[in-house]
């Protein structure tokens, strides 16, 4: 099972059809609506998390596109507030990818390229300076 986060834009003409219900019925996906904007006469917008098998997720997204819905998969990344960081190194205890490491000056550095967004670091940080963020 995997989870992805998507932003869906519904053109006016699709807004009245229960399209997301088909994601459950035909594609075995479960979803959690995180943000919704629905106003009469205007395109609707939904931000939601979709969870399911990889193949179902791919088919589900293709179905949405066929229905004329704008689909953007939001990518997850770890944001590091380096200003508030004290370089204690607690996060490096759980960072298997080696993205978070202490450099020669004992200062924390974060290599975004290496990060696999496992999110273990977020709660391991005593100062709360590592966050999950979503972008397109």
């Amino acid at each position: 099972m995997s989870t992805i986060k998507v932003r869906l834009v519904f053109p006016g003409e699709t807004a009245s059809r229960p399209i997301t219900s088909y994601l459950i019925q035909d594609y075995n996906l479960i979803f959690n609506i995180l943000q919704a904007r629905i106003e009469p006469g205007r395109p609707g917008e939904l931000v939601m998390e979709l969870e399911g098998e990889e193949v179902d997720l791919q088919n589900g997204l293709r179905f949405l596109e066929r229905e004329g819905i704008g689909v953007a998969v939001l990518s997850r990344s770890i944001q590091w507030d380096s200003e508030s960081c004290v370089s204690c190194g607690a996060c490096t205890a759980v960072c298997a990818s080696g993205a978070l490491h202490l450099d020669a000056d004992a200062k924390l550095s974060f290599d975004q390229e290496k990060c696999v967004v496992c999110q273990m670091c977020i709660k391991s940080c005593p100062m709360g300076v590592l966050h999950l963020s979503y972008g397109e």
């Binding site: 004290v86 204690c88 190194g89 607690a90 490096t92 205890a93 004992a106």
Partner: peptide, 23 residues
């Protein structure tokens, strides 16, 4: 150094206190 030999394999080591701030 970042890792030690423990129970026959290499294990990651990490500090909890900040050497950078201590310096």
């Amino acid at each position: 150094s970042g890792s030690i030999e423990l129970m026959g394999r290499r294990v990651r080591t990490a500090p909890l206190s900040s050497l950078a701030m201590a310096r």
